[in-house]
C-alpha cells in the first residue's frame, strides 16, 4: 500500500526527467528528415554535423574556452580558498560576500554587468571577454569545492610534515597539494561543464569573431527542429556523463 507508493512516485518523476533525453538520443539516429516520424536507423546527422565547418569550429572554440576558463578559475579559486583558509586579513568577509553574490545572483544580472564593463572599458567582445566572464562565474564554485576540502583538513598535517624534516616548500608539494588534489580536479570539472553549458552570459559577452557552441545551438533551435541538434545533444550528453562519472569517481575515491 503506502510502502510502494513513494517508490512509484520516484520512478514517475525520473521517467519524466529522462523521457525527453531518451527521445533526443533515439531520434539522433533517425534517418528521416522530420523530427517526428521514424525513418529507420542512420548516422547521417552525425555526419552532417562534422561536415559543417562552422559547427566544428564552434566546437573547438567552446572546448578551448572551457579548458582555459576551467584552468584559470581553478588556479585563482584554489589560491583564494587557501588565502581564506590560512590567512587572516582585512575585508575577508567582504571577499566572501562578493563570491556569494556572484554565485547567487541571476546569471542575467552578471551578464549585463559584465557587458557594460567590457563596452565601457573597451575590451573587444570575443575570446578574452568570454574567458573573463566564464572565469568569474566559475570562481565561487571552485572556491567552495576547495574550501570544503580544506575545512576537513587536519591542521596538524603540515606541522607533522615539518616535524619529520620537510621544508615549507617540500611540505606544500608532498602533503598540501596531494591532499587538496581531488577538490582541484572536481572544481576544474565543474568549471569546465559550467563553461561548456553557459548560454545566458555568453549571449551577452561574445562577439562575431568567436562563435561558441551553445550560441550556435541557440540560433539553430530558436526556429523549427534541426535533426543535427539531436546528434549534437547526444554527443554532449555522453561527454557530460563521462565527465560527471569521472568527477564522482575522483571524489568517492578520495573520501576518507
Amino acid at each position: 500500500m503506502t510502502r510502494w507508493l513513494p517508490k512509484v512516485y520516484l520512478g514517475l518523476v525520473y521517467l519524466l526527467l529522462y523521457v525527453p533525453i531518451g527521445v533526443l538520443v533515439v531520434f539522433s539516429f533517425n534517418d528521416s528528415r522530420s523530427g517526428y516520424t521514424w525513418g529507420g536507423l542512420s548516422l547521417r546527422w552525425y555526419g552532417s554535423l562534422f561536415n559543417n565547418n562552422a559547427m566544428v569550429e564552434a566546437m573547438w572554440n567552446s572546448l578551448w574556452l572551457a579548458l582555459s576558463a576551467a584552468t584559470v578559475s581553478t588556479i585563482i579559486g584554489a589560491l583564494t580558498a587557501l588565502a581564506l583558509h590560512r590567512y587572516r586579513f582585512r575585508g575577508k568577509k567582504v571577499l566572501n560576500g562578493m563570491l556569494f553574490v556572484v554565485m547567487m545572483s541571476p546569471e542575467i544580472v552578471l551578464a549585463i554587468s559584465l557587458l557594460a564593463l567590457f563596452l565601457l572599458v573597451g575590451i573587444q567582445l570575443g575570446y578574452v571577454s568570454l574567458l573573463l566572464a566564464h572565469v568569474t562565474f566559475c570562481l565561487p564554485f571552485v572556491v567552495i569545492t576547495v574550501m570544503a576540502r580544506l575545512s576537513g583538513f587536519d591542521e596538524s598535517l603540515p606541522e607533522a610534515a615539518r616535524d619529520l624534516g620537510a621544508s615549507d616548500f617540500t611540505m606544500t608539494r608532498t602533503v598540501l597539494i596531494p591532499v587538496i588534489m581531488p577538490a582541484l580536479l572536481a572544481g576544474w570539472l565543474l568549471g569546465f561543464t559550467l563553461s561548456l553549458d553557459d548560454v545566458v552570459v555568453s549571449t551577452f559577452v561574445s562577439g562575431p569573431s568567436y562563435e561558441i557552441l551553445p550560441l550556435r545551438i541557440y540560433s539553430m533551435v530558436r526556429v523549427g527542429l534541426k535533426p543535427e541538434v539531436n546528434a549534437l545533444g547526444t554527443l554532449l550528453l555522453v561527454f557530460s556523463l563521462v565527465m560527471l562519472m569521472l568527477s564522482q569517481w575522483i571524489l568517492t575515491r578520495s573520501k576518507r
Binding site: D154, S156, L157, A160, V175, M181
Partner: peptide, 10 residues
C-alpha cells in the same frame, strides 16, 4: 606524536 595522529591520508 599528534593528538589526532596527523597521518598523511594520501
Amino acid at each position: 606524536v599528534f593528538q589526532h595522529y596527523a597521518l598523511f591520508p594520501h
